[in-house]
Amino acid sequence: MTSLAPPVVRGQEPTRSSGGRSGSVLVWMALPAFVMFVFFGIIPLFGVVALSFATWNGISPEIKLTGLDSWTAALTNPNLPNALWVTFLIMALSWLVQTPLSILIGTFMARQSRYRGFLAVLYFIPLLLSSAAIAITYKSLLDPNFGLGAGLGVEALNQNWLGEASLAIATLIFVVSWQFIPFHSLIYQGAVRQIPASMYEAAQIDGAGRMRQFFSITLPQLKYTIITSSTLMVVGSLTFFDLIWVLTAGGPGDSTRALAVQMYQLGFQASLMGPASAIAVILVLVGLGLSLLLRRIGGRADQSQLEGA
């Protein structure tokens, strides 16, 4: 870089571009995005808190402030414990399945060779599909009468994958992993490529095998990436809605009815916008709490945010 050149030029003009007229031009430049985001992002954030203390059926123009009524209704709803449990289950299981697989696949892809590059292109495809398309594909594929299992006549494959409570949640985790492991392996791939090769060379000289290198170098070096990826996974799992909605609509029974699904059903099907807003507030708080917790575990919060992104 030519970082040695500028001192010669400096001093002719005030170097602080933020001051004076150009500063106000810059403010004008930032304004459209700011206004847009405040209007549809920040105001609704306050709005959802306000609505959780109100009663509204979603149709009539009448919105009444009713204090804690909506919160009482939301918190005493007999479906809430199940929704919390399902949300936790999806979060924990999808993390447990996705993290080790993403790390292994990411490490595998990090080594440069032509066929790995080709594989990486194919791995990426699920990321391009909409959750609706993925859910519909799996619904057809796993149908007990018309799906793959029935067509191949393989008994083990021919289960009622989405019709039985315990199988449905396992199927959901599988579909989630199918959709999101590509993304997380890309993050790990980028991070593994940043590990200095000298560390591996040193380990090789010391006679460490590949397994030993993986556990003593790769994994510890990925610590902050693991925190980043886990935060995205855990917080993201709170908001799975489209996939669950199209795949199972929360069923069978209420076995896959997570908080986001319950919020939709309460608000837009039962017309109880107040309690639905209370659940939305819970979602935001749980999400914030979890990401703060994971930051604390990670220690160096700032760097972990940027790594591999």
């Binding site: 954030l45 709005g47 709170l238 908001t239 919020m263 939305a280």
Partner: peptide, 8 residues
């Protein structure tokens, strides 16, 4: 998350 503010 978009889901959380969808009602407002």
């Amino acid at each position: 998350p978009l889901q959380a503010v969808i009602i407002p």
